[in-house]
């Protein structure tokens, strides 16, 4: 009996020992995985895709698909593989497979939509020399986002990308299709955060591809009201609007944008052109004199707009 007790105690101790050992092993593996994830995400933060790819690709297959962070880490691994340099068939396939895993297994509609947009983009462009563009596949993925329950923002982004695939066809039919897609989106999503970008892109297509400054101005007007996405180029867009107005026989409206440019953008190199635009209008229309705004000097005023 004494031996039995001793034997059981020994087994229990051994079992405990194994348990502890196993736990320590699991713990150590978990720590190692966590370390790889942390290092990978940190590298991604600094756009070091190769390092991020090395770390995250290594750890991703070990992760439990049911875990909270699986979809986010898989998505990060996909981005890292996609953008690792030099771009190669292997990296693009790896990225595509990660994005596809997110699409197939993630539970959050937002990250699924993001993965579809990203995968669509991979199909849309040629990432390496022999990579073939597959516009129908890209369009299909973008359309899936449009018909999903994704946020307005992601639907807007997918819409822009979808329209872009039609502009890329270099055909009039493609342009008409792109215009229709963007126009419908503006109507259907009046409160979208991306309204400005959609309207401006539509304006660009009208002016640059269809030489239609009047329609271009209408859509730029929407973008102006919503706020242009790139603040540093706002003055250029206002100058563009003044020119659109002039080129669509709306000279008085052109002076409105010119005045805005001179008054609100002292750092614009188009300010003086804009001032001359008003002067010329006044010369041609002496009865309709538009007040001349005063040229400002950003350096002297100490303002950095």
């Amino acid at each position: 009996m004494k031996h039995l007790k001793t034997g059981l105690a020994f087994l229990a101790a051994a079992y405990l020992g194994i348990l502890v050992g196993c736990d320590q092993g699991e713990h150590s593996k978990h720590s190692e995985n966590q370390k790889l994830v942390d290092e990978g995400l940190e590298a991604l933060k600094y756009y070091d895709y190769n390092l991020a790819g090395n770390k995250l690709s290594k750890v991703q297959p070990n992760l439990d698909k049911g875990s909270d962070s699986w979809d986010r880490i898989t998505f990060a691994a996909a981005i890292a593989a996609w953008h690792s340099s030099p771009p190669s068939a292997h990296n693009i396939e790896l990225a595509s497979s990660f994005f596809q895993q997110v699409i197939d297994h993630a539970s959050d509609a937002q990250i699924i939509a993001l993965a579809k947009i990203s995968l669509g983009r991979i199909y849309e462009v040629s990432d390496y020399r022999t990579d073939e563009v597959d516009l129908p596949k890209a369009q299909s993925l973008y359309r899936e986002v449009l018909s999903s329950e994704s946020s307005n923002d992601l639907v807007s982004e997918a819409t822009l990308r979808l329209a872009q695939t039609y502009v890329q066809t270099l055909t009039q039919e493609g342009l008409t299709r792109a215009i229709s897609i963007l126009g419908n989106h503006l109507e259907s999503y009046p409160n979208s955060n991306w309204r400005s970008v959609v309207a401006q892109y539509l304006g660009d297509i009208y002016y640059e591809r269809l030489n239609d400054p009047k329609n271009a101005l209408n859509y730029y007007q929407i973008a102006l009201e919503e706020g242009f996405a790139n603040k540093t180029k706002e003055h250029i867009y206002i100058w563009r609007m003044a020119e659109f107005a002039k080129r669509s026989d709306q000279a008085l409206l052109s002076t409105v944008y010119s005045t805005k440019l001179v008054e609100e953008y002292p750092r614009s190199q188009y300010g003086w052109f804009a001032l001359n635009n008003i002067r010329r209008y006044n010369e041609a229309n002496p009865d309709d004199s538009v007040p001349l705004p005063e040229m400002r000097n950003a350096f002297l005023e100490g303002v950095g707009q």
Binding site: A76, L114, I117, A229
Partner: peptide
């Protein structure tokens, strides 16, 4: 594309409006 996808990811993770604005600018 590198910038856009990284910013998309950040905007998603942090629900970050600044990343969102920059993202719009880069997508444009």
């Amino acid at each position: 594309d590198r910038m856009v996808s990284t910013l998309e990811y950040r905007a998603y993770l942090n629900d970050d409006q600044k990343s969102e604005t920059k993202l719009q600018s880069l997508v444009y």
